[in-house]
């Protein structure tokens, strides 16, 4: 693949890397796994890039490849061992509007999300990314109605985890 294509890809990904980091955050539990998955997503994005026709936004296209990689293609590396509390290292609760109760609630919420299945994580991720049900359904490959039903079930499941 030529240098020009590589340059445009790396520039686009550098600009939109947030999306990949957020996918890694949902699907991994430590920094090593996060880096490992980030790398695998980058490779898959790069492999698919020559077929990216630009009829959708680069970021929209990224969601599909990144989620497909995290859910289906990624195989956890054996060298990744849990060394520290991931959430507390990478994702700090922001200091503005600091609220003890809120912080505690958020911590529990993030932990609860980790307990969801891979497919449920994809739904909640797209929901948090402000995607509408049509986009969520298309990315996952289900109907809009089913996406709504599944989302409601996830909300109930989360409620149960939070208030056992």
């Amino acid at each position: 693949m030529n240098k020009e294509l590589e340059h445009s890809f790396v520039t686009e990904l550098e600009r939109n890397q947030n999306i990949v980091h957020k996918v890694c955050r949902i699907y991994t539990s430590n920094k090593e796994q996060h880096n490992d998955l980030f790398q695998e997503i980058t490779i898959q994005l790069w492999k698919a890039y020559p077929k990216f026709r630009g009829d959708s936004k680069f970021s929209t296209w990224m969601y599909r490849v990144a989620l497909n990689t995290a859910i289906t293609l990624y195989r956890k590396s054996k060298r990744s061992v849990k060394t520290q509390d991931y959430e507390s290292v990478i994702f700090k609760i922001t200091s503005e509007d600091y609220d003890d109760t809120e912080e505690e609630q958020l911590k529990i919420m993030y932990k609860a999300i980790k307990q969801l299945s891979d497919i449920e994580k994809a739904l909640i991720f797209l929901y948090l990314e402000d995607k509408n049900y049509k986009e969520i359904a298309e990315t996952i490959g289900i109907t809009e109605v089913n996406a709504r039903v599944k989302m409601n079930r996830i909300k109930t499941k989360l409620k149960k985890i939070l208030n056992p």
Partner: peptide, 12 residues
């Protein structure tokens, strides 16, 4: 990121 594009995949 550029370095990562040259790495080998270990996908399923």
């Amino acid at each position: 990121i550029d370095k990562m594009t040259h790495k080998k995949s270990s996908s399923l």
